[in-house]
């Protein structure tokens, strides 16, 4: 970024290094953000630091569905008014938030923690699939909705889950149809997602 002659304080380049590790942030942007952080009133930047610290300290994965939560089980898993007969399987917490936003779904969730991606070295045993199968042994569960992302990894993951869940004799449906392909669930607009949830197909 800068030639070696420019003397940058070590603590400054440390923050830069950290920021540039975030997705979508290159070195240039990292420098801009760092300069912004240091030029703001100290209490504002410290508030940012503290909120990150709090996030790490308080937010955990739900031991049932692997949603992000401050209490375990998470509010969705502990909500008695939700339909415990339906589990919607998603890749990441963002996908859960996107579906919750539609207000269209009242069942439970299961977060896989990603998708099967052999090219990135992600294989089924690295996802929360065994835990899902455990949950499905509960007689209460009638239906599983597969809501993986409409891309290659999501398709393969859904196909894999169908093979694993089918022998259990539980109804399986898929929502991804009609979503713009290649996109992520979290970026699908609300009305498309609503339509996708309503018009799910049986597997």
């Amino acid at each position: 970024m800068f030639s070696r002659r420019v003397n940058i304080p070590e603590s400054l380049s440390a923050v830069c290094d950290q920021l540039s590790k975030l997705p979508g942030i290159g070195y240039k942007t990292a420098y801009r953000l760092t300069f912004f952080i240091i030029s703001r009133p100290p209490e504002e930047s410290l508030a940012l630091a503290r909120s990150i610290e709090e996030l790490i300290g308080k937010v955990k994965y739900c031991s049932v569905c692997f949603n992000l939560t401050e209490s375990d089980p998470c509010p969705i898993c502990s909500d008695k008014s939700r339909d415990r007969g339906v589990i919607c399987v998603v890749e990441n917490p963002n996908d859960l938030f996107a579906i919750e936003e539609t207000g269209e779904y009242h069942g439970l969730y299961h977060i896989l923690g990603g998708a099967i991606a052999p090219l990135d070295g992600i294989e089924p045993d690295q996802l929360h699939i065994t835990e899902l199968v455990e949950r499905l042994k509960d007689d209460e569960v009638r239906e599983v909705i597969l809501a993986t992302n409409p891309n290659t990894e999501g398709d393969v993951t859904a196909a894999y889950l169908v093979k694993i869940i089918k022998p259990l004799g539980i109804k399986i449906s898929k929502i991804a149809r009609g979503l713009p392909s290649g996109s992520d669930l979290e970026f699908a607009d609300k009305s498309t997602l609503k339509r996708a949830l309503k018009g799910r197909t049986d597997e």
Binding site: I116, P118, A159, Y160, K163
Partner: peptide, 18 residues
């Protein structure tokens, strides 16, 4: 070395075939 490798392969086959 893949846990559940055969099932994984046949899932990939499903997508490939579709």
């Amino acid at each position: 070395g893949v846990v559940g490798g055969k099932v994984l392969l046949s899932s990939i086959d499903d997508v490939l075939i579709e």
